[in-house]
Nucleic acid binder design. Structure first.
Lengths: 236, 236
DNA sequence: AGCTTTTTTGTCGTTTTGACAAAAATATTT
DNA sequence: AAATATTTTTGTCAAAACGACAAAAAAGCT
């Protein structure tokens, strides 16, 4: 057993799932580990919680120094406590879901030509699969630690919440001006299946328009072919 | 600052919400603290996670030595990490929801005439209130640490899940033989509001009977007045 | 026998959902 | 310029789900 951590107490870390929707697909940010254990394996970004940090502030600090990103949506996912989940010793992980619009992430990704990669996430009855741009694929067992399980839990949470909370809106490039088909693209990417646009529109408007959180602007989208879409604004 | 814990690292504890339905009301088990801090205050049962325990096994061990109970339903609720949540030092709490049928709990409660008390839980727009059998009342601020907040989160979770998961069935005295009105009583206790029995029955049967998890037995309930209820069996 | 209590089945109008068709508004092609 | 393609938006319609309520059924109690 290669213990690198002092042995008489527990360490607590945060691990974060940074999710985004890129060209209609759900993507996840992974970092390549430089050190043992799991050297050269892909892993979720993470950090130990400091003495004077809550888990949330730890996540914020990690985001700032990695990307840097501020004000991203985050929510606690689950806490993983298996005794042997980290070969270095006793480490508990509090996992967080973080949602960042792709335009923000993209700008920062090539800023830092770093060992980070965005993987397309898909999960069906056959289990979780991650695919990079060149077609390289990963299964949960390829990832460091128990990060495969953490990602699966994250996708399940996201899918479970997307149609009765406003979490889907967090993927939008600009919640102040977006079209309903943009939003629909997010839903389809998260759910991994297509959605009837007519029923989707009806459902979204029924849920949010009456409360006044979702309002139609007087702007229209100006882009290529097809009828220009009306732009909406969401209060988040 | 009265530090009683070594100061250079984090401690991790579990705190558990032991919930039950007693005579139509949702109840919660609290223990009276014997030591500082919050001496004499009511608190959730809890324990530090040991070096060779996961959070789940810690909860199991705590339940066994407290009550003792085995095989109770449990699910992780949330992890509370505020820096100042414990005046002794840096303690993170992983909170668990535990559901125990009242008959089991009752038998054990008078076994141990201990500083444990079952409080009736109610939560509405006016916030959380706990009431003991003699009418004594507590509000969240009366509890030790941040346990008021933890309880509120637990009730919200329970209410949010009860009508699209099978969590309500965990309160039943005997999942192998129960009436639908027994189950309805659980739902009403959890939700804090009454339910139309006709629609309730229709909903439960529609959700579970087709899958074969819920089946009607050939037994009938034999008890006092009124038409005897058919008994059902649920696969949990 | 008649009343009370509780369980169980039934009814009925409203709302929601799912699948699909059609119209509207623009760019692109012929 | 007219026709075509593409995308957004509105509309339709039957099935399913829901909420409120009524009534029947099966027991005990007086």
């Amino acid at each position: 057993m290669h213990t690198q951590l002092a042995g008489d107490h527990l360490y607590v870390a945060v691990d974060i799932l940074i999710l985004t929707v890129r060209s209609g697909r759900l993507n996840l940010l992974l970092s390549r580990r430089a050190n043992t254990p799991y050297e050269e394996h892909w892993a979720l970004p993470g950090r130990f919680i400091g003495q004077d940090e809550s888990a949330e502030t730890t996540v914020e600090h990690l985001l700032e120094e990695m990307l840097p990103i501020r004000q991203a949506y985050m929510e606690q996912l689950y806490t993983f406590t298996d005794v042997n989940r980290d070969p270095r010793g006793r480490v508990i992980s509090v996992a967080y879901l973080v949602i960042v619009p792709w335009s923000q992430l993209e700008a920062l990704m090539d800023w830092m030509d770093l060992p980070f990669l965005c993987y397309e996430v898909s999960m069906d009855s056959g289990g979780l699969t991650l695919t990079d741009e060149s077609g390289g694929m990963l299964i949960p067992g390829d990832l460091a630690f128990d990060h495969g399980r953490i990602i699966e839990a994250g996708i399940r949470r996201l899918r479970g919440k997307i149609d009765y909370t406003d979490i889907g809106f967090r993927f939008l490039e600009d919640p102040e001006a977006f079209s309903l088909s943009e939003l629909q693209t997010v839903f389809e990417a998260v759910l991994g299946e297509s959605v009837d646009s007519s029923n989707f529109r009806r459902g979204i408007l029924a849920r949010y328009e009456k409360t006044g959180r979702l309002t139609q602007t007087d702007q229209a989208e100006k882009k290529g072919r097809g009828r220009p879409a009306a732009l909406y604004r969401m209060d988040l």
